[in-house]
Structure formats: C-alpha cells, structure tokens
C-alpha cells in the first residue's frame, strides 16, 4: 500500500457548486492543504465566488472574504494591514482570483500590492476565459480559441492575440517569488505554495486549472489535458525566485501542440496552418524560458 503523496487534511469540503471535472476546486484544495488553517482567503467575482455555495453556507474551513472583481490585490493588502496592526502572527493572507480578475480588470490592484511589497500570496487560477459569466475571452485566452466574445463566425473571429504572460509581468515587478503550477501536479503545486509561504513579501502563483465547460471537452479529461499542456510546453512549470529561473518539471519527450489542441472543442475550427503557427509560438516561448534558466543559473 502506497501512502498518499499529498496531505490528507481537507480544508475544502464537498457539496460545492463547481461544474463536473472543474479544475478550479482542485487548485483551492491543494492551496489550502499546503497552507493549513491559519489562512485567510480573499476571492473576487469569478467562478470561485459561486463555488463555495450560497449564503449562509461555505465550503471552506478557513475565513473567506469576498471582494469586488478588480480589487483582490487591494483586499489582501488591507487584510494584511489589519492583521499586522492587531499583532496577529503566523497568518497566510491569500488572494485567489481567476484570469480575468488577475490579468484584466484586477491587474492594477495586483500590481499595486506587489509593487508595495505586501506580505501576501496571490494565486491566479487560470481557466483562460471569463467562465463565471459564460466563457468570454480574457487577455489570458490563448491564440486561436473560440469564446462567446471571440466566436468563429464566417470571418474567423476567434482570439487573435497571444496569451499575456503574467509571471513575466510579476517578474518585472522584481517580485521575490513567482511560479506556475498545474492541477495535474499536486505535489509540485503544494511544494511551491509552501515555499512561497516561507518567503517574506509578495508571492505570485499562476495555477493552470482547466474548465471542461468552457474548453468544450469531457469532464474526465481535466487532468489529462493539464498534463498535456505541460508536456507540449504550452504551459511550462517553473519558478522564479528573486529573479532566478528554474524549470521544475523537465519536458523530455515534447508532445506536439496539435495533440493538446485537438482534445478541445474550443480549438476545433483551427486548420493545419494555425496549428503550425501556434506550435512555432510555443517553441519560441519555450526556448526563451530555457535561455532565461540558463542565463540566471549562477544567480
């Protein structure tokens, strides 16, 4: 009999409102397993504003403060200020927001919090669109994807921009710690959150969290697709500690991006030409990451 490879204590309960196979609850589940009960979470408008259930119930065994869509960074700054002012010790203050709440409407408050050096952990669970409002594009929706605001139509109106790189934006703030994690790799996920908790100042963790509903794929494929995202270098798993890059999940047999794209209905309209284009983009980004790792090796 093997032993569970992640802590067995649960801080997120069953009975929540997420769709079948949703990656977002897994991100929360792992996050709280890593941090334990002396944690306060702030959540803006996003699927996770609905997932914990309706008033007067909650499915989290930690205090949770809901906030408006664009102010997670400010909310956790205020929580930290109050906790410090009251002399309360050993509390993790965590913001937990979607890709829209992080990279679009909430980027200002996040940038402010990180620039001020607030002692917080910010986790973006990335499902690559505004899912709560019904699958509209965000600046983290990848090139080529169908969403309800980038419909394919007769004019190939699908997403025409490449995904914004939030980790790089955070690194540009000279943040002490930034990392990517994926629900496909819970052990790495938990290790990184724990590491972040031990570092003073702002920490940013970007969690890959597939949305079967919005990605137009069967719910049982969530983990498989997340794994494939990393194996194809679409979503590399790495960390940047005080500027030093480290790829924490080596990719040995790089899988074709087309394998990843073809599993999801949101890319079903793409032809060979576009797939090639995406492959080239992914390759270039991956090369760049390898070079950054190499360049900062001695730091």
């Amino acid at each position: 009999m093997a032993k569970p490879t992640i802590p067995t204590e649960e801080y997120m309960l069953s009975g929540h409102m997420a769709c079948l196979g949703c990656g977002a609850p897994l991100a929360m589940r792992y996050l709280l397993k890593a941090l334990g009960k002396r944690t306060v979470v702030s959540i803006p408008a996003c699927c996770w504003a609905v997932i914990p259930g309706v008033f007067p119930y909650t499915n989290l065994k930690v205090p949770l403060v809901y906030t408006a869509f664009e102010v997670t960074g400010a909310s956790i700054s205020g929580l930290r200020a109050a906790i410090d002012a009251r002399g309360i010790k050993d509390v993790n203050v965590v913001g937990f927001a979607g890709d829209g709440g992080t990279a679009d409407i909430g980027i200002q408050a996040l940038s402010g919090a990180v620039e001020r050096g607030e002692n917080i952990i910010y986790m973006c669970y990335d499902n690559e669109a505004y899912m709560n409002t019904g699958i509209q594009r965000s600046s983290l929706t990848p090139f080529g994807a169908w969403t309800t605001t980038t419909p394919v139509g007769k004019t190939k109106f699908w997403q025409k921009t490449q995904k914004k790189n939030m980790v790089e934006i955070m690194v540009a703030h000279r943040i002490p710690y930034a990392a990517t994690v994926s629900v496909a790799y819970p052990e790495d996920f938990i290790n990184k959150v724990r590491k972040a908790a031990g570092i003073p100042g702002p920490k940013y963790i970007h969690a890959f969290a597939p949305c079967p509903t919005g990605w137009r794929m069967p719910p049982e494929k969530t983990i498989e697709i997340a794994r494939l995202a990393t194996d194809s270098c679409v979503f590399p798993i790495y960390e940047v500690e005080y500027g030093k890059y480290k790829i924490t999940r080596k990719v040995v047999n790089k899988k074709p991006v087309a394998d990843y794209l073809k599993m999801q209905g949101r890319f079903s309209h793409l032809g060979e030409e576009e797939m090639k284009q995406i492959q080239e983009y992914v390759d270039r980004e991956w090369e760049l990451l390898l070079k950054k790792e190499e360049f900062t090796k001695e730091w």
Partner: peptide
C-alpha cells in the same frame, strides 16, 4: 477595497 478588508480584519 483595502479598508473594507482591513475593517473585516
């Protein structure tokens, strides 16, 4: 926004 959370804190 910060103060609302601070007040809750």
């Amino acid at each position: 926004a910060a103060l609302i959370s601070a007040s809750l804190g």
